[in-house]
């Protein structure tokens, strides 16, 4: 009875570990897609409404989910005309905080933190196009992760279960 309980625990544990790894990968993909959505929404708003970026963040915030939502709300608060804070500092502070415990790589985090650097173009089209570079880079990463997800997630799950079975056999 105890052996059976042990086997179930081993199998459950290894499968659970594999499942967690897969979940991390899914979250990673989700965060990159939300980042991509943010850039494309900002680009559209710049092109069609021509509003300042502080107002765009307010409009875009309702359409973005995940951890970025709270970060964008904080950015909005700190960026008011009265506060007079620098966008670069506020953005960096808030985004670093929110992305700290995410599966995003350093390169991916830096790309999002670099967003204020792209601002400063004197006309709408130029500014909208300046964001295209970020989106291209993100598209590449998303594509890579999506392909990996299809193939690697199955492998990870199978490996997890196989490890559980192997350990059970060895320990019996």
């Amino acid at each position: 009875m105890i052996k059976l309980f042990g086997i179930i625990l081993l199998l459950g544990g290894s499968t659970g570990f594999a499942f967690c790894l897969c979940q991390d990968r899914r979250e990673h993909l989700f965060l990159l897609k939300e980042m991509r959505l943010f850039f494309s929404l900002v680009q559209e708003e710049i092109r069609y409404s021509g509003l300042p970026v502080t107002e765009i963040i307010k409009n875009v915030n309702t359409k973005i989910s995940g951890p970025y939502y709270n970060a964008l709300s904080n950015v909005m608060e700190k960026l008011s005309w009265e506060e007079g804070n620098h966008l670069k500092d506020v953005w960096k502070g808030e985004m670093e905080k929110v992305m700290e415990h995410t599966p995003l790589s350093r390169q991916e985090k830096e790309l999002f933190i670099r967003f204020p650097d792209s601002l400063g173009m004197p006309e709408k089209d130029g500014q909208a196009n300046a964001l295209a570079g970020y989106m291209r880079e993100l598209d590449g990463w998303i594509q890579e992760l999506e392909q990996e997800e299809k193939s690697k997630n199955k492998v990870i799950m199978s490996m997890g279960m196989a490890t559980g079975i192997l350990l059970s056999v060895l320990l019996l």
Binding site: L51, P52, T54, I56, L119
Partner: peptide, 10 residues
């Protein structure tokens, strides 16, 4: 930058 709300295009 502050006067333009970091959005010179606007």
């Amino acid at each position: 930058d502050h006067i333009c709300s970091y959005s010179r295009y606007a």
